[in-house]
Design a protein around this nucleic acid. Structure first.
Length: 133
DNA sequence: GCCAACGTTGGC
DNA sequence: GCCAACGTTGGC
């Protein structure tokens, strides 16, 4: 899941403990939100001037209607609980260099804000997060 | 600040 | 239904 740190960062999530992951206004991203299951782990990605995967969250509530009164479509949100902050965040540059991650949706469809990740890809990221650059 | 990629809107 | 124009996101 992506977020702009100026708007909502992993530090905000750490402080708050849990947050409503709302504001998604893209059909594809919304459909992925609906697929989130309780206890699913989510990588938190900061977009912007220092793009990198910064840590981990966990789905603490499955999708429910986004009560935004202006938008009457069936937009949804989930709740995400803080899990951990990586000691070594994984920069986008590193993700791009890693051959095993060349099929990452993050790289193929850079504007998508919520997306699934394969188990083996997730393992590569965990590995990278523990390696000093 | 620029540009690519993608989404949305509106005229026809 | 097509397409041009425009808006937004996000990397560089």
């Amino acid at each position: 899941m992506k977020t702009e740190p100026e708007t909502y960062s992993i530090d905000d999530l750490e402080q708050e403990g849990e947050t409503n992951w709302n504001g998604v206004r893209n059909f594809q991203a919304r459909n992925f939100l609906k697929q989130c299951k309780l206890k699913d782990l989510v990588f938190i990605y900061h977009s912007g001037k220092n793009p990198q995967i910064v840590g981990l969250g966990e789905i603490s509530k499955e999708f429910f209607l986004d009560p935004d009164p202006k938008k009457n479509g069936d937009w949804v949100q989930v709740k995400v609980k803080f899990k951990e902050k990586f000691l070594n965040p994984v920069p986008l540059k590193v993700l791009k260099q890693e051959n095993r991650l060349k099929n990452l949706l993050l790289l193929k469809q850079s504007r998508l804000s919520v997306m699934p990740i394969k188990e083996n890809e997730a393992e590569v990221i965990f590995e990278l997060a523990k390696i000093k650059n």
